[in-house]
Design a protein around this nucleic acid. Structure first.
Lengths: 227, 227
DNA sequence: CCTGAACTGCACCCACGGTACAGTAGCCAT
DNA sequence: ATGGCTACTGTACCGTGGGTGCAGTTCAGG
């Protein structure tokens, strides 16, 4: 009943309601990006429902109205978060694979170099890997709309295919010693990343993840490397 | 304005406030177990903060007071949930390992049989593996107290040691072909379970997890099996 | 028959997600 | 220089969820 409330209010003619906002508007996308970065870190530590809009706006130094200017609702934040994460991860993964392949004509050696680079990358993160947002969302997926879950699936599918393409080219040149499918080997890369992150976090040892990547690398060498 | 409401009420001296509760008390532990089972399923789908006490009591057919009779607060529920999960998982895992070892004197064959049994177990779950509560909690661990996180670490450490012990005995008899540590190989089992569950969920294919377990089994065969 | 375990009912509080809307500071193009 | 747009601020309000506190009730078992 807003009418009753409105009636009790003084309602001073028209102006003088808001005295003077302290801070100025920022550049396009700047505040939005700050919210997303804060939200991603918080969601990886407390889950999505456990992360309040209030804490994000306090950390970002804006008001609630400011938040809802950038995001329609909390679900919209989730979507933006997942989009941003997938794009960033795509870029990192593709970057490593491309760099490794530039230095190696051989598909097997190229991929083995890429895995070593990946292991080094995560080993050097000061506080360990912050976590995979897709994995985090998967364990809370009933909070999200159908399209966000589709986004997650597409993102994961993309990484799977990056691995699978490389593995298929390797298998062409080096016949595998066991009848393992390249699809399963590709899934294993994804699974070991997700599982390795979780094991690192649970055991409070950031080095578990890079060691698992190197172990996967050993596995591939045994499967494909001749001699 | 609740005061107005209170004022309008009759407030009859002292008694006659509560007429007659419909349902009767149940057997010891029965309701508590029902709440825990409902909560575990809900937490694996929506996260801990995303699971409301209201929905649990509605599903369990009790009142809020009934809930707080069994659990001091929501954190107490989390602790009970984790305890229950670790004990149940311990039992399943140990049961499989013991059964496989009864049928096999050889440590390698025994472990390979156990892995096959594990793969079959998860392959036969009608809706796929419901999820690992330790993994779920790990991605929301700032919601939980220090002692719950310690509980998770101990539980995971227990599973790690179950695998490590078997692998150590295997390595004694069959010298590994690569210098991989049994600790890393044990971590890989845990990581592939966690990661395999996530991959199954994201890709909506329950068979990814059993296939990853079988692939891990292939890996161990390559590492240890002579000939 | 009485006790205690296992609840119910009611009242109340604060935090959080969300809605609605009016006002405003600074930049940019005309 | 001015008007319009973007990026916000401030205020008020609502429903839901997590809790707290406490008195009362039911029923099984000793």
């Amino acid at each position: 009943m807003p009418d009753a409330t409105t009636a009790t209010k003084p309602k001073p003619a028209k102006p003088a309601a808001t005295p003077a906002p302290a801070r100025a508007p920022r550049k396009r996308g700047e505040t939005r990006e700050r919210i997303l970065a804060l939200a991603e870190a918080a969601v990886l530590e407390k889950g999505f429902a456990g992360t309040s809009i209030d804490e994000l706006i306090a950390a970002a130094g804006i008001t609630k109205s400011g938040f809802f200017y950038h995001f329609k609702d909390k679900g919209d934040l989730a979507r933006a978060l997942m989009q941003r994460y997938i794009e960033a991860n795509d870029e990192i993964l593709l970057g490593i694979l491309k760099r490794a392949e530039e230095l190696n004509d051989d598909p097997l050696h190229g991929f083995l170099v890429a895995l070593r680079m990946l292991a080094e990358l995560v080993a050097d993160l000061p506080n360990g890997h912050p976590g995979c947002l897709v994995a985090a969302f998967t364990y809370q997926d009933q909070l999200f709309s159908r399209d966000i879950r589709a986004l997650m699936e597409r993102g994961n599918q993309g990484w799977r295919e990056m691995y699978r393409d490389r593995l298929a080219r390797i298998a062409e040149r080096y016949p595998p010693r066991i009848p393992a499918s390249v699809d399963d080997l590709a899934d294993m890369a994804n699974a070991l990343m997700d599982g390795g992150i979780i094991q690192s976090k649970v055991m409070k040892d950031p080095q578990v993840l890079p060691r698992q990547i190197m172990l996967y690398r050993d596995f591939l060498r045994m499967v494909f490397q001749p001699g």
